[in-house]
């Protein structure tokens, strides 16, 4: 496999691989397997959602009326935009424009923080309503059997997702700082690509959570 620009001999990062391309292949494959584990992790929550939607069909249809659809949709656009920005950042670093890459990563970090802030505002509203998970559910306006389950699922699904966003933001911050030190460039950019993949995964999961919890 030809190297990208072939100007410099490759510095091997891990000595037990035969060459640079198999090192990168292994890194990407490992990341994909990790992503598969994350998908299965969330699949549990989606299974629970599906089972309770089957059990309480009317309730799940009426539930979005009690959600803040505007904030949720706004968050979707924030997160998709951040994904686009991260993809642009990875592309820039690959092409050797590491400063542009770092700037784009910083923008993605801001968008990630914006997502979390909007989410926090939404959570605050639910807390004021008393739409708390589990045994603390006390939302009088939506007091039908199973409504507590809907909100428990909502809190758990978005909560686990928010934890992933938080991890993703810290990954992006680390990548940004390391890009600024000139560690990544056209020759070596695997961590940026893998960190970007993690961020996209977080985005994809939200793209499934959003229609299920806010729209349908």
């Amino acid at each position: 496999m030809p190297l990208e620009d072939g100007t410099r001999p490759v510095v091997p990062r891990a000595f037990h691989f035969g060459d640079e391309s198999s090192r990168e292949d292994a890194a990407h494959l490992g990341m994909w397997i990790f992503i598969a584990t994350e998908v299965l992790l969330f699949a549990v929550l989606f299974t629970a959602y599906a089972l309770y939607r089957l059990t309480y069909p009317d309730l799940f249809q009426r539930a979005p009326a009690h959600m803040d659809v505007f904030l949720g949709t706004l968050n979707t656009f924030v997160l998709v935009t951040s994904s686009i920005v991260v993809a642009l950042a990875v592309d820039s670093v690959r092409k050797g424009r590491d400063f542009a890459g770092a700037a784009l990563l910083a923008l993605a970090v801001l968008l990630g923080i914006a997502f979390l802030s909007i989410k926090a505002a939404e959570y605050a509203k639910h807390v004021r309503d008393g739409a708390l998970p589990g045994a603390w559910y006390a939302y009088e306006a939506f007091a039908v059997p199973g409504a507590n389950l809907y909100f428990t699922l909502y809190w758990v699904m978005t909560g686990v997702h928010a934890v992933h966003v938080l991890v993703g933001v810290s990954v992006l911050v680390t990548l940004m700082l390391r890009t600024l030190t000139g560690e990544f460039g056209a020759r070596f950019h695997t961590p940026v690509a893998l960190g970007g993949m993690y961020w996209h995964l977080v985005d994809v999961i939200w793209l499934f959570l959003w229609p299920l919890l806010y729209l349908t």
């Binding site: 598969a36 584990t37 994350e38 299965l40 992790l41 969330f42 699949a43 549990v44 929550l45 629970a48 998970p133 589990g134 045994a135 603390w136 507590n148 389950l149 428990t152 699922l153 758990v156």
Partner: peptide
């Protein structure tokens, strides 16, 4: 493929104990 499912289930049991999730 299977272990993450276990992890989440254990987390849900923990949640059931901590906040009485009800799932």
């Amino acid at each position: 493929l299977a272990t993450p499912v276990l992890g989440m289930v254990l987390a849900l049991v923990a949640l059931e104990r901590v906040v009485g999730a009800g799932l």
